[in-house]
Each structure stands twice: as structure tokens, then as C-alpha cells.
């Protein structure tokens, strides 16, 4: 029926589809908000919502048990990036107390076709990633902070995402118990 279909690498097309759709969303938000900071917040929130759902797929897919320490968590996040975005960030720069680390990306699939104009240097284009990590970890009772330290869109050699453990959230106690 089709002479063209076999030409396409469907994995690549799907990755580009995601990248371009995300880019179109960012473009739309930049039209909707005057303040770039609001765009950052919206992107982060969207990531957070996605993370809350994505974690269930990840747990079901990998049958992973609950992590006992941050080093395990770091490995799982790395694995998730491999599963969902087909990239493998390097885990590095652990703090002395092992409660803070970096994910370093040689390439960031989200920014493959993106160049930031001068007036958008405050835009944290990939905020969806930090939101996603935060949302996913909150679902497994880990409260973390997550922010960008380096960003290739801003001229850095790599993109570096910093993750800091804040606290373990307690399981809910049923009413009447203590």
C-alpha cells in the first residue's frame, strides 16, 4: 500500500513528535503569559501532574520496591529517563551527606530543535523535567527540590539538573489511630 512507510524510523519519529509538541506548548504559553516566570511555573506544574501518573507506570513496569536511600532513588530516576526519553543522564556531584546529587545530560531530547532568543534567557525551557521528578517522587513519599544548574540552551556544555532530598513524607494514619 505504501512505498514510504518503511523509510521512517518510528522510534525517532515518536521522539520528534514529543519534542515538537512540547515546543508548540511552550510557544503557546509564551503567547498566553507576559511574564516568563509564569511560563516556568506552568511548565513545572504540567510536569508535576505528569510525574504523578508516570510513577505508577514506572512502578508497575519495573516492579521496583520502595527506595531505602537516595542513591537507589538516583538510579531509578536514571532508569526512568532511559525508559521514557531514551537518554541516560550521568549521576554525579553527590553532596557529602548523600542527600543531594546531579543528573547530567549530554543531550536533552526536549531541546533538540530549540534556540532561545536573547529576550528569553529567563525561560527554563525544560521545567517539565524537574516538575515530573518532583511529582513522581512525591507519590513515593519523597519530598525533593529540583532545579537546573546548567542548561545547554544557555550556552553550557551540558544540562545539569540538581535534586535535593528534603524529607520523607509520612504515610497517612487512619482516623482514630495514633
Amino acid at each position: 500500500m505504501s512505498r514510504q512507510a518503511s523509510r521512517f524510523d518510528s522510534k525517532k519519529v515518536n521522539a520528534e513528535f514529543l519534542t515538537l509538541t512540547y515546543g508548540a506548548l511552550v510557544t503557546q504559553m509564551l503567547r498566553d503569559f507576559e511574564n516568563v516566570e509564569d511560563v516556568n511555573k506552568q511548565l513545572e506544574r504540567i510536569g508535576y501532574n505528569m510525574g504523578m501518573r508516570l510513577i505508577e507506570d514506572f512502578l508497575a513496569r519495573t516492579s521496583a520496591p520502595r527506595c531505602l536511600e537516595m542513591r537507589e532513588t538516583a538510579d531509578r530516576i536514571q532508569q526512568a529517563f532511559r525508559i521514557y526519553l531514551n537518554v541516560q543522564p550521568t549521576i554525579s556531584n553527590w553532596s557529602a551527606s548523600s542527600d543531594e546529587f546531579s543528573l547530567v545530560f549530554e543531550t536533552n531530547p526536549l531541546t533538540e530543535f530549540v534556540e532561545l532568543p536573547q529576550d528569553l534567557t529567563n525561560l527554563r525551557y525544560s521545567s517539565i523535567l524537574s516538575g515530573c521528578i518532583r511529582g513522581a517522587l512525591e507519590m513515593v513519599q519523597l519530598d525533593v527540590q529540583c532545579w537546573f544548574v546548567q542548561d545547554q540552551l544557555k550556552g553550557d556544555n551540558v544540562t545539569e539538573l540538581r535534586i535535593k532530598f528534603v524529607r520523607r513524607l509520612e504515610d497517612a494514619i487512619p482516623a482514630g489511630e495514633d
Partner: peptide
């Protein structure tokens, strides 16, 4: 696995 990510993005 990429599909599920896209579906979640689309819903958001």
C-alpha cells in the same frame, strides 16, 4: 514507553 509519556503530555 514513549507513547505513555506522550499521552500524559497530551492530556495535560
Amino acid at each position: 514507553s514513549e507513547d505513555i509519556l506522550f499521552d500524559f503530555l497530551h492530556a495535560e
